[in-house]
Design a protein around this nucleic acid. Structure first.
Lengths: 209, 209
DNA sequence: CGCAAAATTAAACAAATGTTTGATTTAATT
DNA sequence: AATTAAATCAAACATTTGTTTAATTTTGCG
């Protein structure tokens, strides 16, 4: 599906409101008003409120798998370099799309919308397959250990990044970084969590530390 | 605050419904009907729907910090043994209180209720202080590395466990464990994620693997 | 221009929302 | 048994909810 500028504007507005007040906590009137369109336009364009959030998910998850796939096809990189690429890419993606990510986490908790749940499960499965190939490749080359629990590994990646970027304020105040400007803080945090996860991954995947 | 049996029954019913349909997706009529009480009883006992979810959080987070504190006071255990205790305890707690944990994650995403947000931040801070002492103790004894990012470490614990138990079905289907009975599967998964996280922690905290 | 399709609008719709009321029943205490 | 407080109830409350309608305006095209 491809959307017009006006449709994308409604989707983006809904994304902001959903991420701040939740799907059920946001009314179509809220969205229409914030987007500067008549309330009837939401049903007109997306059929319903449910149709709108589904459109949001389809729009934001488009190309996600494709990017990872092409990323890992690069033959010039070693398995461990590809893992590092993967971590950096994931951290970058979540950090820059934190609003949508919050909505996604809530949807994963409740699993009320079957269309979205199916979409996300499919996405997760396809991503896991790609990473699985990468790990098997590393194992065949003798770079990775033979006993790796892929799901737990991915859960550590997703979980650590989610926890970190869901409440960056906590990280800031705990480490007394209130005076650091936002951009610098964000960049440092991204670098820090990337390094952290890479260290974890190497401990799980490789033989030496 | 201490609650009567009937109040606790309403709280438990609300917990189940909130975890399945979300706070805003659950009406006070849903709760009253499922709990077998008149709808007016919710305002009567808790003041409002907001008061009810706040009561739920106060009730479920009671004693959480105390338990960790007393756990780590045990002088018979080494720092690394205490870390292992901590991981096992956290895994066990989330696994057995998955409904409340889902509600908590959603609340952390949206942060609409300031009372709950403050409660959770306070809880996190106090827990972090306890674990911080434990790590410093390990560092002084030469068992732990000097450069440990406590928040990232805790984020990995919380994040990995959350991701794992939020969608146990995914772990099951990916590893083709559909035929394993529920109890065995849950126990194996708890053991598996515990071992996984302990491995990660040792890689971060200690010198050798 | 003329016309048809698309876009936009204000208004209305029934249903659902959280909360309160005021009366009635139950329980506990004297 | 009498009295008082607590608990429970059906009903009503004013809003808000998502969606639809039917009329109007705008747009694109021959």
């Amino acid at each position: 599906m491809t959307y017009s500028d006006k449709q994308l504007q409604i989707i983006t507005t809904a994304e902001t409101l959903f991420s701040g007040k939740g799907y059920d906590g946001t009314s179509v009137r809220d969205i229409a008003e914030a987007a500067g369109v008549n309330i009837a336009m939401i049903s007109y364009y997306f059929g319903s409120k449910e149709g709108l959030i589904q459109a949001l998910f389809e729009e934001r998850t488009r190309d996600v798998v494709l990017k990872v796939e092409s990323l890992l096809k690069n033959d010039a990189l070693s398995p461990i370099e590809k893992i590092e690429w993967l971590v950096d890419d994931y951290v970058q993606r979540i950090a820059t799309k934190i609003q949508f990510h919050k909505i996604m986490v809530c949807e994963q908790m409740l699993q009320k919308n079957t269309v979205i749940t199916t979409l996300l499960t499919e996405l997760k499965k396809r991503n896991a397959e790609v990473v699985s190939k990468l790990i098997k490749d590393g194992q065949e080359k003798g770079a990775f250990r033979p006993d790796v629990d892929l799901v737990l590994l991915m859960n550590t990646l997703i979980g650590t990044v989610t926890q970190t970027f869901i409440n960056t304020d906590y990280y800031r105040s705990y480490n007394h970084l209130e005076s650091v400007d936002e951009t610098t803080f964000q960049d440092d945090l991204k670098a820090g969590v990337s390094t952290h996860i890479k260290t974890l991954f190497k401990a799980i995947l490789t033989y030496e530390s």
